[in-house]
Design a protein around this nucleic acid. Structure first.
Lengths: 257, 257
DNA sequence: TCGGATAGGCGCCCA
DNA sequence: TGGGCGCTTATCCGA
């Protein structure tokens, strides 16, 4: 039997740390009820519980990368002990979690200082930027006009023309599925309607590294084109300063596990 | 200045705990590089780092409910110390995270026992089940035939007929957006094509608690119907045994924070 | 394994 | 605040 921490002491710590806007990590045996957008129960097991200083709650099982239960930031917390159990009730506008803790194996808290934001390269936005700057990968005639713009027809990744024909480009970072041709169709039909022209007058291009078979069929039936564009390849073949800095992983002798 | 733990000791603990398939939680100051499906850097800040026993990695900033960096389960871990820094390198097939830890404020580990799975009620599947069992909420004539079935036309939520007219129902748990009418359209067109009939011969119904204005316009243009169905209301008005058990939250006097 | 779709999705941006 | 949409989406389920 492992050591477990005293429930009443943990209760005091929790109340103090939540008030002080500290982040808290518990390792504990608990069961959970959730009521809100759906209803859920999770029977007793050992989990990692995080209460962040923004008043969000995360409960993680020992496997999987998504939390099994969670609450958004700015939730309110109520703590009480009951015989040998510790109950944490977390509420926000329409949701409620009741965490019933039987045993606490570890309790850690600290106010965390972190003002940094992640810098991410290789998103769909980067892909549409790339196409905007290198329109020849779409076609020699393609002249882009706008990118990532919320037009009155909808949100179009890259928009431009070839000679006198309008062109709408929809980008996907990964293999395009059946939703992609539909999205393209929707933008084109809205644009055609708005401009009072036939949708057939607008060229649709789906730019993605790959496409599923049924999506390809759909695209063909709709009269649009698939253009293979693999952002990852383009980045690796033509590293910018930004990327080369990121990719410059230090390599040293290491203890492999 | 807070106490910080000895980097070399932490290195030893990490190697031991990863080998022993323990779950590990660190509170530490670190910076992070990621390379894989995208490229990312995150400069130094104080974070919560979790290495789960399934060999997944999660790094959480002090706010927000999604991890800022992460790796899937079954990744491999390499630990090394370098002057006063601890480096954890996590790899899987196509991805790499390098975690450079400057200070460790807390280290906890334990093998967690948890065989439970969450039981969830109120999903879209529950909604299509409900419609299947209570077809009158769609219309008096509606006779459902199948639900949640991967037909050769696609994955249709509820399928049936009214007298001699085919009916396709698409369910959304919350307010339907512009994608919903398109999805309905896609299923109906595929079905029409497959059966060699006109899409106009098939009735399309979008069942959802609400719909955005532009989605409503789109739906109208396509000749489909919106049917307000709010699963949450239905569940609350007509609690089943399962739900009433879940919703039976213990109410006791509590210390509000 | 791939494909298709949901998610208690989350988070971001923009009207 | 709501709408629209990408996400290192993750996760589930079926072919």
């Amino acid at each position: 039997m492992h050591n477990t921490l005293n429930i009443v002491e943990i209760e005091e710590l929790l109340i103090k740390d939540i008030k002080k806007n500290n982040s808290i990590v518990l390792i504990a045996k608990c069961n959970i009820k959730y009521s809100g957008r759906a209803e859920a129960i999770l029977n007793t097991g050992e989990r990692i519980i995080i209460i962040k200083q923004d008043k969000s709650l995360l409960i993680h099982q020992p496997s999987g990368s998504t939390p099994v239960n969670y609450m958004k930031s700015d939730s309110s917390f109520t703590v009480l002990s009951n015989d040998s159990n510790l109950i944490i009730r977390t509420k926000n506008a329409n949701e409620l979690i009741e965490l019933n803790i039987q045993e606490v194996y570890s309790y850690q808290s600290r106010h965390l200082e972190d003002t940094e934001k992640i810098q991410l390269i290789g998103t769909e936005k980067d892909m549409s930027d790339y196409i905007y700057k290198h329109p020849n990968i779409i076609s020699k005639q393609f002249k882009p006009v706008s990118r990532e713009e919320q037009t009155k027809f909808g949100f179009i990744d890259v928009f431009g023309y070839e000679k006198d024909k309008l062109v709408v480009v929809e980008c996907k970072r990964y293999k395009a599925g059946p939703n992609a041709p539909q999205q393209l169709r929707r933008y084109i039909e809205k644009m055609a309607k708005s401009k009072g022209i036939s949708p057939l007058k607008i060229k649709g291009i789906l730019a993605a590294p790959d496409i599923t078979k049924s999506a390809r069929n759909m695209l063909k039936e709709l009269g649009y084109e698939f253009k293979r564009v693999d952002l990852h390849e383009l980045i690796f073949n033509k590293k910018t300063k930004k990327q080369s800095k990121i990719l410059n992983f230090i390599t040293k002798k290491a203890k492999n596990i």
